[in-house]
Structure formats: structure tokens, C-alpha cells
Design a protein around this nucleic acid. Structure first.
Lengths: 214, 214, 214, 214
DNA sequence: GATGAATGAGGTTTCATTCAT
DNA sequence: AATGAATGAAACCTCATTCAT
């Protein structure tokens, strides 16, 4: 029993380690060359493993890409919660306006020195633009982000921090679109301007645009 | 001689007509299946022409795609100028703030019922996200948009319509990113909310965020 | 116009020649290594053409195999009609019994010195045995052979050359099965016995088994 | 010691049980998808065991397939002897003609409601048609069937039950080919006609074709 | 005895491009 | 100007097999 347990854990560990390595490699390559340019053979090679392993583990390229997308999204979400925790606040303590601002700001902060995961995520987002796109779960996740943001804005209207005359749905689209679009612009042309100034200006603009005035 | 002249004009016309047909077909296919999914053979077929014609006319796929991107951008710019003309204004009559707003609004209006060109343009924008991207001229064009917008904002500060404490560069990134990002979101998930409400809310937010206050 | 006509004929000829070469190569390789063992790359190579051509022409392996099957079946049918013509008879002149016999005998004769087409056809027949098989049109063609043979036997009963107490359906299955099975056995193990003696004995057995007795 | 003995027997039993399960699964999959379509991983899975077990037990796919072929042939032979035993006859009591008939008939009877083994066997037979075929032992077994049948026919001529003017070799090929071919036809297209009528007609035709006449 | 992770060869297919017509 | 035949690289995927556990 003990022997079996060890063997199992070791096999599982081996598997897990390979998967992580493959996802890491996929992130690098997708960020670099796009979803289609990142071939499974190259992903395997870059991970220091064999050409055939990516398919062996994930069954198909679509699955691998979807898994990478989810991992990146989860990491971002976890990072955001960490940030809140670091500042010793809970969600309940924040006004809606503060929460909107922190959402946007912590997202943009990721792009000051973007990880491969984060860069890959934007690239994957870009590859969902064609009508028949394939990155599974991506559009759903985007929808959830939109709904969540919309609710936060409505909350902010209830708690009096956000102007009551905004339409939460429409404002959520604008804020989310700005987050994604700005990230994409800066990733594409990193010389455009530096992210820190953008974040500072962004705080200003969000406050001006959303804040309820006496 | 006269006959030859006519023949030549006809040849040139035919050529032009074929090229337009090919670009139209390319726009449809790129909007539908992405840049890589739009194969030259399919583009030729969709245009009602031969498989070999796209290469024959444009020399390479990259060139074809670049030409399509330029055509779409020029059409958008021309449309914008037409809108201004319709409202019997010249650029000189507008405050910086008005110009920013009209730029954004007329862009978003394109996505209420997007043409194939416009949809293809967003798809091509998405395919520039990888670090080694290929759509020639696209990043430069984006840079020019950014510079132009930045200047308009600075003009607005000079003419007193836009808050003086904004950094024009950073504000331009935020506004341009929002335009692109919102367009992409709505193209990807058309059920999210309707564009008209977004435009209305956008006017509000831009005014609040940029307007100089007494 | 004339130039176009020539060009077209020449292009068409080129295409036709390649197709024939590919089908010939496919027949050799399928006879040798089976349907799955005959890879498209090898077929192209054996035909003295490129690896990619088989797919380019036929679209898929299934189509290529189906085309080969049809070609072989048509050639066999044409050969049978030629044989009849050589003997200056028309179908109408033959009794049902004679026609059954000639059908079987001319089929078996093909296997005295079997062409690649004929060998490939038996191999393709063998590859239809799995429940989910793929050689398109093969099972239908087999069904048609069976129906045709069954009608010939019924005709023979009407014209008095074949015993009236046979069930035409069942007899057709037995005769057709024998044709195919014997062909397969001899192809598989050519040392079993020589085909000429089989044909002689076959005539005997068919006469004994089917002939109406006074 | 006793414990060890038990353990060993249990181990051996387990091994045997696994092997049988693997062969059963292989029969199902080969009947369904052909020899090449039946992958070792799927065989293991279908048997409710692991992916690696087929190789572990049989060493190679070829060996597994050969073992399955032999098992199926032995079962068929054993079934035939059982049938004889049920009818309380020994081989010595039968005339050659009767024995030929019973061989064919009991074989065809198997296909009225064919087991996976029997279906797989026909599929494996079909996969021996290519010149370089792989199912080890299959062609030899077929040869032995042929030789045996040929001897039975010669015996029948000696005992006066079968026409003396037949060539035993050739007749054996025809009878064996018919058995196999009819089985294949009915397996491929089960709607062709029902096996019972074929068996009835077959008895008739064999008697007419082989029986010595006074 | 058994599991399943890992490999890498090989298959079909898609495609941009070249070239003859 | 236009067609479409031909090429060959590269993609995804399947699979028998090897090997560590």
C-alpha cells in the first residue's frame, strides 16, 4: 500500500511536472508566434520533451490551448486576490468605484513587465476575433468578466460611489474593452509610452468618468 | 492605336476589378476564419476566380493582407471625413474635445453593423499581438493613429476644451485602446450589449474624463 | 480560341496522365501492402511524382481508393463484354446457365496472371470486412453484382437451363462468394494449385450443381 | 509454502484471465475496425485494463493478433468436433461426401449469429490478401485447411460417395473458397439474404456437384 | 504482474508558392 | 491577364513500443 502510494504520487508528479513544462513552453511560443505559429512539435521541444508529448497529454492542440488560457486566467485572478490581501482589505471594505479602479489598475500593472502567461493570454484573446474561432472557453470567460464588472459597477451605484446615471452594462463594456485594448496596444508596440504613466492617467480618467459628484 | 488604347484600358480595368474582387473575398474569409484560415485558394474561389490568381496579382499572401489592411483603413478614414463634411464642419471648427469624441464615436458606429472590411481589420489587428507578427504596415498605422490622437488631445488642451492636467500620450493610449478593445469585444460576442447604448455612455464618459472644468 | 483550346486540352491531358499514373501506383502498392500500408506519399513517389500530389488531385485517400476501385471494376466489366464480343455472341444468345458459367470463368481467368488492378481489387474487398469499413462504393458494387447474378439465375430458370428448384438469391450468394473466395485464396497462396485446373473443375461443378436435368 | 503456492496459482490465474480478457477485447475491436484500427491502447481499455498491458503480455501486436487467430481457429475446430459428438458419430462413420457437407455447413452455421471471434477471423483473413501480409500463421492454417479438405474429397472418391472424375485439389479450393467468400459476403452486407436459405441451397448444390451418380 | 509516462516514426492533410500553358 | 498543375514543407494526430515506477 505504501509502495503503491509512493509510486502513484511519483507517477502523478512526473505527469504534473511535464504538463507544467509543456504549458510554460506553450505560453512562451504563443506569446512569440501566435496560437497557430506555436506548433505542438516546437512546444514539446521547447519544454525539453518529445515532439509527441503535447498531444499525448492533452489529446489535442485545442485542449492544450484551452488549458493554458484557464491557467493564465486563474493565476491572474489569484494575483488580484493576493494584492487585496496584501493591502489587508477584503472586498467588502471597498466601494464599487475603488474595486473598479483596482481591477483595471492591477490588470494594467501586469503589463509593466508581462509574464509569458499574460502575453499569451492577450494573444489568445486576439485569436478569438474571427467569427469561427477556436480557443475554447475564452469567449465564455470574457463574458463572465463582463458580467462581473457590470455588477461591480451597479454595486458602486448602490453604495453611492459611482454616478447613478451610467448604464452599468455599457460602462462595463467600455472599461473592459479599455483594459484589453490598452494591454494589446502596449504589448504590440512597447515603445508607445510607458505603462506607469498610463496607469496614473487611467486612475484619473476612471475617477472623473465614474465618480458620483456631490 | 485607338483599338489598342481601348484594349489596354479594358485590361487595366479587368485587372482592377479582379483585385477588388479578391480583396473583398479576402475580407470575408479573414473576418470569418482569421488570417491563417483564409487560404489563397479559397480567396480565389470565393471571388469567383481561379486558385492561382491571388498570388499572380499580389505576389504573396503577406502583400495581399497588407493591401487589404490599407484599403480598410483608408475607407474608414474617408468615411470619417465624409461624416464631418455631412455635418458641414471642417476640422478647424472643432474643439479638440469634440474631435476626440467624434473620432471615437464614428469608429464605434462602424460596429453597429460592421462591414466585412471592418471586421477583417479587427481580426488583422488581433493577429498582430504575437511578438513576431506579420501583417505588414499594421503596427505602423496603429502608431500613426496613436500619434495623431495624442496631438488632437494636446490641441484640445491648448484650445481649453480638455483638462490641462492630462498627459496627452497616456490619454491617447487609453482612448485608442478603448476604441479597439470595445470593438473587438462586441465583434466577438455580439450579445454582450448593443452598440448604441455603448456609444451613448461613451460620450458621457469621455466628456467627464477629458473635459476641462471651470 | 484555338490557343486556348490547345492549352486546355494539354492541361487536361497533363492532369489525366498524372491521375492514371497515381492510380496505377496505388494499385501496385495496395496489392503489395494493403490499403492502409499504401501511404499517399509512397503512391506519389512510385508514380514518379511528388508526395503531395495524391491529395491534391483526389482530395483525400478515401476518394483515391474509391476511384481505383471503380476503375478496376469498370475494366473488369469491359473485359467481360470484350470476351463476349470476341466470341461473337450477344447476351441475348446465351442461356442463363451459360452466362453464369462465363461470368465465373472469365472472372477466375483474370487470376491466372492477375493485373495489379485485379489484385488491388481483392485486397480492397478484404478491407471491407470490418464492420466500420471505408472503401466507398465497394459494398454497393458488391450488392449490385449479387443482384445481377441473382437475376441471371432466375432468367436461367425461365429459359429452362437452370434447375427450377434452386433459390436464385441463395444460389447467387454461393456463386459470388465462391468467385471472390477462390480468387482470394489463390492470390494469398499462389502455390495452392494452378488456376487452370480450378477453372476446369469449376465448369464441371457449376454444371452439375445448376443444370436442369431432364 | 502453501501460501506461496496459492499466491502463485492466483497469479497465474490472474494472468490467464487478463489474457483472455485482452483477446476478447481484441476480437471485438478487430471485428469492428479491422486489424490496424484496433490499437493496443484501445484493446487494453476495452478489456477494462491498462493501456500498457497488451504489450506487456504479448510482447507485440503481431503476436497478440496471431494468438487471437489461433484461439478462434481452435474454437471453431472444437465446435465442429462437438457437433459431430452431439450427433453421436465419429469421423470414421461418415462418407467423404457427408464430411465435406458437414464441414461447410457447420462453418456457415457459425455466421447465422456470428461471435466476435468468428467475425474477427474473417477480418483477419481479409487482411492477409496483400502480398506482404502480416497475420502470422494465418496463411499456414489456411493451407492446412485446404490440404485437409482435399484429402477428405479424395477419401470420398475412394469410398464411392464422391464423383471419381473430380480433381480433389481443385475441388478443395472451390469448396474452401466458397466457405470463406460466402461468410465474408454475409458479414459485409447482412441484408443480402439470410444464412439459413444459403445453407439449405448449399447442401443441394454440394450434393449435385460432388455426388457420385450411379 | 501491472501501470501509464514518454518517445519518435509515420500517416493524412493543408497550403503558399512555382511554373507550364 | 489568367489558369490550374505540381511541389514540398509543415501541421496535427495516431500508434507501437520502451521504460520507470
Amino acid at each position: 500500500m505504501a509502495g503503491e502510494g509512493v509510486a502513484r504520487r511519483t507517477q502523478a508528479e512526473r505527469r504534473g511536472r511535464s504538463e507544467e513544462a509543456l504549458l510554460d513552453a506553450a505560453a512562451v511560443l504563443i506569446a512569440e508566434r501566435g496560437v497557430e505559429g506555436a506548433s505542438l512539435a516546437r512546444i514539446g521541444g521547447r519544454a525539453g520533451l518529445s515532439r509527441g508529448l503535447p498531444t499525448h497529454h492533452f489529446g489535442s492542440k485545442d485542449t492544450l490551448v484551452a488549458r493554458l488560457a484557464r491557467r493564465a486566467q486563474e493565476r491572474i485572478a489569484a494575483g488580484f486576490l493576493d494584492t487585496l490581501a496584501d493591502e489587508a482589505r477584503t472586498l467588502a471594505d471597498l466601494t464599487g468605484l475603488e474595486l473598479v479602479y483596482m481591477t483595471v489598475d492591477s490588470y494594467l500593472q501586469l503589463f509593466e513587465d508581462p509574464s509569458d502567461d499574460v502575453r499569451a493570454l492577450i494573444v489568445m484573446w486576439g485569436s478569438t476575433f474571427p467569427a469561427r474561432s477556436s480557443v475554447e472557453g475564452m469567449i465564455d470567460a470574457e463574458r463572465r468578466s463582463y458580467v462581473g464588472l457590470s455588477e461591480v459597477i451597479a454595486d458602486g451605484q448602490r453604495d453611492g460611489s459611482i454616478r447613478a446615471d451610467l448604464e452599468p452594462d455599457a460602462a462595463a463594456v467600455l472599461v473592459l474593452g479599455m483594459m484589453r485594448g490598452v494591454a494589446a496596444l502596449l504589448l504590440t508596440d512597447s515603445e508607445i509610452t510607458d505603462m506607469r504613466r498610463v496607469r496614473r492617467t487611467c486612475r484619473d480618467m476612471i475617477n472623473q468618468a465614474l465618480e458620483a459628484r456631490p
